[in-house]
Write a protein that binds this DNA or RNA. Structure first.
Lengths: 208, 208
DNA sequence: TAGATTGTTAATCGATTAACAATC
DNA sequence: TAGATTGTTAATCGATTAACAATC
């Protein structure tokens, strides 16, 4: 594997390049210039070229970058051979929205289970994903060898769930509750707090 | 007003400080030290002190920071006097989740309308928010003087909606679709792409 | 006092952007 | 060729962290 430990922001953009390039491919194009990719994402061509430099991909002066090759290369960087299993904890509107998104985006990430405590939801299947009772969390996580957990529960139980996930051997957590979590070093944690996003927009709107 | 144009990240943390401090206040505490605030968010005390320095708030050596005062100060920075009106465009699971969140968090941001094209949703009220047909978007936005728009539609229509929002005089847009948008300078744009977040976690889990 | 804490400047780290040589 | 493009180094910008004087 090339260039280990890519910058955070580069990884994010690689994910976006790949999706945009897949669209372009459908339109029948085979090659693309850095300024065209930049246009799709509304960033600068230099940034695109620098990112591609970091992953060691080179284009040609006359035709730019080979779209298929680039898509494949990004795949070898982001995806794992066999894909990674994902669980959603909390089957509210947000949990459902996430399951829905995954369903549409064919990716190497596979949501294989959801969890909730509401009896009406247990054992129901939502767009192909079965919902289990929270009691079974550790059991199913270990059995299925699930690598990533997405927390969309009420904030009050977020910490407790993070502990259970960690104990069950999870390797990455995406926390959508506004409760800040802390996890051991070997677990990768990414937090996204909607309220903060709203208030941030409000602030910048105010002083515009 | 103090210290104009705060750093992006400081604004985000101020929002989080405020919510954490509100909790602490309920527990009967009146004062708090920087290392305690830091503990709540799992960041460093220096970072807390630096943020507070930027907004010009000072504590005391013996008692730390006055929680109520600090909450109020953050309010004068982030909130506007009369609050700001918000519209959610796209009444799917994600739109509903957002409306729900707002409902629980009493804030100066007020979701006053939702929009969709599904006839079954039109004119229904979801946790206090009425859903209108997309046709009425410009009309209601102008009439109600809505400042912020949250886009949770399918990505295919995101650009078109951003144009309409802009024309209707919106001042900030939060884009939850994976389609990158571009807006005029006078509109503040914040994008959040879930798929990118998932793939980012997957990448860092892979190379851990 | 000694120890704990604040407020702030300087140093470092990470990410973007500018500048430009090389090439088709 | 001239113009457009790539790949890459150096400069800049933004954010975090280290260091430390001041003070109760």
């Amino acid at each position: 594997m090339i260039a280990n430990r890519l910058p955070d922001k580069t990884v994010e953009r690689l994910s976006q390049y790949r999706r945009s390039l897949n669209n372009v491919l459908l339109q029948g194009k085979t090659h693309i210039f850095s300024h065209e990719i930049a246009g799709l994402l509304h960033i600068t061509p230099v940034q695109v070229r620098r990112d591609l430099m970091l992953i060691g991909y080179t284009g040609t002066l006359r035709r730019g970058y080979d779209i298929k090759e680039l898509i494949n290369l990004i795949g070898t960087i982001i995806d794992t051979e066999k894909g990674q299993k994902v669980a959603v904890i909390g089957m509210g509107n947000l949990g459902k929205a996430i399951i829905h998104y995954f369903h549409e985006t064919r990716s190497k990430l596979d949501i294989v289970a959801a969890f909730d405590i509401n009896p009406e939801k247990i054992n129901k299947v939502y767009v192909g994903v079965k919902c289990y009772h929270m009691n079974l969390l550790e059991k199913i996580l270990s059995e299925e060898n699930i690598a990533i957990g997405i927390i969309t529960t009420p904030p009050e139980v977020a910490s407790e769930i993070a502990v259970k996930l960690t104990q069950a051997g999870i390797r990455g957590i995406l926390n959508y509750t506004p409760k800040p979590l802390s996890v051991p070093d070997h677990v990768y944690l990414e937090e996204y707090d909607m309220i903060t996003s709203f208030e941030k927009v409000a602030y910048f709107v105010k002083y515009h």
